Computed example of a mutant assay.
Amino acid sequence: MKLIIAILISVSVSITSAYGATPSPKVSPKPTSTTKPAATKSATATPNTSQTTTPSKKPSKKPTKKKVKKTATPIPSPLPEWPPVGFTANKGIYAKIPSSKELLGLISAKAGLAELVKKCEANACGAVIVAADYTCKWWEIKSTVYGNDPADSTKKIVLGRLLTTSKELAPKTYANIILVSDEPIFSPAVVDPNTGESIPGAQRPGIFVGGISAICHKTGSVDNTITNTYTPVK
């Protein structure tokens, strides 16, 4: 099922891109060294002597290695790639519907998300990853729950609207937001008249969360927890 993100922005602020130029390294002129000619010593033969004296050579000075001072400053970890790749972007706001593999990865990394996913075993849920160039005081995620039309299974109808809020997010930081509705994905359980046992209801086909839009609010605030408010269509 293909989910489409409609990215909205709640402020009318013009965002400009800043470009930085890296100056080329300056080349220093090589110092000119003046070398004096070495003095030539002549060897004079002494009369009636066959021995010849040779001038002694001065020992050459070995070059000294410059010691590099080790620094105790830790090397920072590289920043995540920015702007995000594979995201839908609009005026500095980025959003993406995670794949099933990505969703499993973020759930395993954060235990708090696993609690939300447990609710999705019985209810229709969605997910979105959001980020922005600037600080968002809070996020507002709007989505729609769809299902099959009872009169025509090839068509979809709106079952309800979902409003999700999330806390403040720093610039160039990612937030994984789970969208949890109260729309059941199974029919109500029934009681077997012969045994009196409860029989789970059948799965309702074609139910999904779509029409997701992410709004970054630059003012105001909300609770530090993600909230979901579902309104069924009567």
Rank of each mutant, 00 (worst) to 15 (best):
P25A: 00
S24Q: 03
N228E: 06
I215Q: 11
T44A: 13
G206H: 02
E102T: 12
P200H: 07
N90R: 10
D133E: 09
V128E: 01
Y94D: 01
S99R: 02
C125K: 02
P76M: 11
T52C: 09
A21Y: 00
N224H: 05
V233N: 13
P200S: 06
E115A: 14
S14R: 09
V27S: 00
S50Q: 09
A202I: 13
N228P: 09
V130K: 01
P184N: 06
A95Q: 01
T164L: 07
P98A: 02
A189M: 04
R204H: 02
T231C: 03
T52E: 07
T144K: 08
A127Y: 04
Y174H: 08
T88S: 12
L162R: 12
T32W: 03
A45G: 09
F87M: 07
P59W: 05
G210L: 06
I5E: 09
T49A: 15
A214R: 01
E121S: 14
C125D: 02
A21I: 01
L169A: 08
G211P: 04
K156T: 15
G220M: 11
S99C: 00
A170M: 09
K2E: 10
E81F: 08
L179Q: 02
S100W: 06
G86E: 01
P23M: 00
K66M: 11
G211S: 13
T52W: 12
T165Y: 06
H217W: 09
L116R: 14
L103K: 04
S60M: 11
K58E: 12
S213H: 02
S17H: 06
T53W: 06
P171K: 00
K58H: 12
I4T: 14
S187I: 02
R204P: 02
I75H: 10
I15Q: 04
